[in-house]
């Protein structure tokens, strides 16, 4: 069958909402788009362990520590689910990690911001995981079968993440004046970067066209961002915190909140490596990976010895 005919049949399957499976025909650009998007997603889960992992030893109670440990372990798990799904596209785990280390593959910019106080553990769970959930719920319907299935698994686990974060920040918002200030400060610092997690405006998002045509993406950046804002505003109000946006206003006609313009210079600067923690996050990943090399080699040698017995 000619390539054109195959692509036509492929698009027909997509249009009929059929899932594409690893061994099915797919256009090379579809495969490459998925590898880029899914590896970025997996790397985000893994790099995302760093800001929170940093607080495990400083958690204010044993309960908080156990929860945070479980949460960070889940993030590792989510990274592995998506790596596993990405590998079905014919790329190895080693290659995925090597691309991250070379800076060829990206991860979510939000993790290039530091987690300065315990209230940040609240803001990250509530806002960062909240934004991620909004995106991932939509991706449960993505056209690539293994990716869609990994999203279903992840979404089941994410609501624990968001609730534990909201519990932290709600507790601080009810606490002493100083604690309440800390909660508000965390919201102030994480609000805009959380909105940036949805990516550029649809009009500035060059790859959206193909991603929508192939149903890799099911809803646009702006639609998802609006949905996140609409459900989050009242959650802030409920605990007496103020969203740091003077343009935020309910629009009766649209049935949605209007909101201020995102600082896109900051967005692009962090994407390009200029965020407060870009270098630190990547170096830490490289170090952890390289420090583990002897363990992997020892395991390989042990397995080989027992195989030859």
């Amino acid at each position: 069958m000619g390539a054109e005919k195959l692509e036509l049949l492929f698009q027909e399957r997509i249009d009929a909402n059929e899932k594409i499976e690893p061994r099915d025909y797919m256009p090379e650009e579809y495969r490459q788009h998925l590898i880029r998007q899914m590896s970025q997603h997996a790397h985000s889960e893994v790099i995302g362990m760093q800001p929170e992992g940093n607080w495990i030893t400083r958690a204010p109670s044993l309960r908080a520590k156990k929860i945070l440990l479980a949460k960070v372990q889940d993030e590792a798990g989510h990274g592995l689910y998506i790596y596993s799904a990405t590998e079905t596209l014919g790329i190895t785990r080693d290659e995925l990690i090597s691309r991250l280390h070379q800076g060829k593959a990206k991860y979510a910019s939000i993790f290039n911001y530091p987690a300065l106080t315990w209230a940040d553990m609240g803001a990250i769970g509530w806002l960062v995981d909240g934004a991620a959930i909004t995106n991932q719920v939509s991706l449960q319907k993505t056209s690539y079968g293994p990716y869609a299935r990994s999203m279903v698994k992840i979404c089941k686990e994410e609501s624990f993440h968001q609730r534990q974060g909201y519990e932290i920040i709600a507790a601080m918002a009810k606490g002493t004046t100083e604690q309440k200030e800390m909660a508000q400060d965390a919201l102030n610092r994480f609000w805009w970067p959380s909105l940036m997690m949805f990516g550029p405006h649809d009009s500035d998002s060059p790859r959206t066209g193909n991603a929508m045509k192939w149903k890799i993406k099911r809803e646009s950046n702006d639609v998802l961002r609006q949905r996140f804002i609409d459900k989050t505003v009242s959650q802030a109000e409920l605990i007496g915190l103020t969203i740091p946006d003077s343009d935020l206003k309910w629009n009766e006609e649209r049935g949605s909140y209007d909101f201020g313009e995102i600082d896109w210079d900051e967005f692009w600067s962090v994407v390009k490596g200029g965020g407060p923690c870009n270098l630190k996050r990547l170096n830490h990943h490289k170090k952890a990976h390289n420090d583990g090399a002897w363990v992997r080699k020892a395991a390989a040698a042990y397995a080989k010895k027992h195989l030859n017995k």
Binding site: G77, L80, Y81, A85, P146, E157
Partner: peptide, 24 residues
């Protein structure tokens, strides 16, 4: 089928799979 894991032998494969796919 739920996904895959990397491991060097059977024992490690079972342990990794348990930690990854049955946390709840």
């Amino acid at each position: 089928h739920v996904g895959s894991v990397h491991a060097f032998d059977k024992e490690m494969a079972v342990q990794n799979a348990r930690d990854l796919y049955t946390r709840r």
